[in-house]
């Protein structure tokens, strides 16, 4: 019998399609798992990061594929908008991984996104805060573009939401 812990462990191996160093669980995208042992079915509830995120259907497919390997006959992926995804949910481990991927982690805001607009952003390469935002919009909906004056590198930040 597949235990709940195994399911979460498997889900923790499903990578974010746009940032493959972190998992959907670490990103706070997986919200709930419901198991129906009699029907050998599992339902996973996920929430989108940015509402226009084109990676959502890839996430859904990847979750289905991974959980089918655990032997479930039915895997359902539901989406919820409530509560709305917050970048505060990104785990500490994931924040370290984002940095190794070259992405500055988003500042925490406790529900008031406005405070992040004035937060200093540390360069993921040299940790200097002598950085400047070049564009609040980047190559994907969830990334902003920065420049580090200390190591003279451009870098990206995972945007706060």
């Amino acid at each position: 019998m597949v235990k709940m812990a195994h399911i979460w462990q498997a889900l923790n191996e499903v990578a974010d399609p746009e940032i493959p160093v972190v998992s959907l669980v670490e990103m706070g995208i997986v919200r709930d798992v419901r198991l129906d042992e009699q029907a050998n079915a599992v339902t996973v509830v996920i929430t989108p990061t940015f509402s226009g995120c084109p990676a959502l259907h890839v996430m859904r497919q990847d979750i289905e594929t991974r959980l089918h390997t655990l032997g479930f006959s039915h895997v359902t992926v539901e989406t919820t908008l409530h509560p709305p995804w917050s970048s505060d949910w990104i785990s500490e481990e994931a924040r370290v991984k984002l940095k190794t991927f070259g992405l500055a982690p988003p500042p925490r805001h406790g529900g008031r996104l406005e405070v992040t607009f004035f937060a200093p952003t540390a360069c993921p390469y040299c940790n200097s805060t002598d950085t400047r935002v070049k564009n609040e919009f980047g190559p994907t909906l969830c990334r902003a573009i920065y420049y580090c004056h200390a190591c003279q590198q451009p870098f990206e930040q995972f945007k706060a939401l």
Partner: peptide
């Protein structure tokens, strides 16, 4: 930069349209 910014904003609005 503006090319990118406006593309992002358009994609966000498209996401809102979808919702």
């Amino acid at each position: 930069e503006e090319d990118i910014a406006l593309a992002n904003i358009a994609q966000d609005e498209l996401g809102h349209a979808r919702l």
